[in-house]
Amino acid sequence: MHISEGVLSPAVLAGGAALAVVGTAIGLKKMDNAAIPRVALLSAAFFVASLIHVPVGPVGLHLVLNGLMGLLVGWPAVPAILIALLLQALLFQFGGLTVLGVNTVVMAAPAVICFWLFRPLLRRPGAPAAVGAFACGAVAILLSGLLVAAALLTTGQAFLQVARLVVLAHIPVMLVEGVITLFIFFFLQKVRPEMLEGIYA
């Protein structure tokens, strides 16, 4: 999902950076003190998730976990993802510093969208919550794929073609992330329900 350096035009880079700044500001504002450890933990999980290799497809893919992040923290997912991406760029050479803003938007926007989209489902017990949790994990990846395609649009690559390629390539990741999100949601609901208070608040 990380877009490499030198692919995008300056206008797209600037736009992405601006959006990322706004999102980070909102996220920091919405993050109360009690939530800080939770956000930090998820930022760390996101940072490491990229190293977990899903050996499918032509390129080989890795976990993203942005759906899970959105589900658990909502808006503060933006600063959490920003910091994780910054460190990935510095330490792993994933993406790059100039593309940091765009990559943040690509991965954080779906997290926040899924949070608001599936919150009503997640609040209901039983099957709806299960569907919501799975969808949260899967749809976040789908949206990220579409955002990658949208960002590449300005480089002259046909949107539909890239979108189809990205989405098809990420179907295994969507399934894996859906299952992981579902699993962690139910696990936390039983063992650590206070971690889910963002959903019920």
Binding site: H2, I52, H53, V54, P55, L61, H62, F92, F94
Partner: peptide
Amino acid sequence: LLAAASPALAHR
């Protein structure tokens, strides 16, 4: 997951 994880960075 850790078992499946190789030190691979598949997309650089």
